[in-house]
Design a protein around this nucleic acid. Structure first.
Lengths: 111, 111
DNA sequence: AATATTTATCGTATTTGTACGATTAATCAG
DNA sequence: CTGATTAATCGTACAAATACGATAAATATT
């Protein structure tokens, strides 16, 4: 009456969860919005805007970059970050199909 | 050359991060997909499908329910869960506008 | 060259998430 | 009523995330 467990989660679910995890901190959401609103790429400006220590912001930026959501280039002693547009185009599609399938029932709900 | 920090993150960013956090575990993504695919609401079936203990699945279900992503009703000794369609309709819109604004530059990128 | 500026990294403390077994509570079947 | 089934909750162990100060590395400025 039980057994037959899937050994591990699908790659798709893992990838989706990984991206969601990156978006799961208000600071990182805020950073993305700041970068999107800025007409030029910024760096230490984010530290001035957010109520976080420089090292903490740097850590968040690193996570965003590792996830491929932002791009970064070194410009002298400063670091310049910006939104990775292409990445978000793909992500938009991924989340779109997820939400579409979740909000569309293929049967009547019981609750 | 600094100061003027925002004391706290915006409610919008906090809400978005909170939802992302719920989606940030593959088990919860998997549960949502299982519920969406099921024509009838299920309960302990999820435990049989996922490689997790009953108590762990119950914990994940609780989080999904607390976030309003699923609905649950007690049906005898069994518990019956299903996708909260309305919630995902709203969420779809929220994430849609986020991704739209993030993938649309209002200026040329520097990196 | 010496100093200041900027940012990444390191080490670490604290909090939060995750998972599990055991227990409890509720209902169902005999 | 008794025993079985189902699911929530509790307690707990362990892992991961978060935040910060201190330091290091790189480049500017004087």
């Amino acid at each position: 009456m039980a057994s037959a467990k899937t050994e591990i989660f699908t790659q798709e679910d893992q990838d989706l969860a990984a991206i969601a995890k990156v978006l799961s901190h208000p600071a990182r959401v805020a950073i993305l919005k700041i970068l999107a609103a800025q007409n030029a790429c910024i760096c230490g400006e984010i530290v001035d805007i957010l109520p976080l220590a420089q090292s903490t912001v740097s850590q968040h930026l690193k996570e965003l970059k590792n996830a491929g959501l932002i791009k970064g280039t070194i410009d002298g002693p400063k670091s310049c970050y910006c939104i990775n547009r292409e990445a978000f185009e793909k992500l938009h599609g991924v989340f779109d199909s997820l939400f579409t399938s979740l909000k569309t029932d293929n049967a009547t709900n019981c609750c």
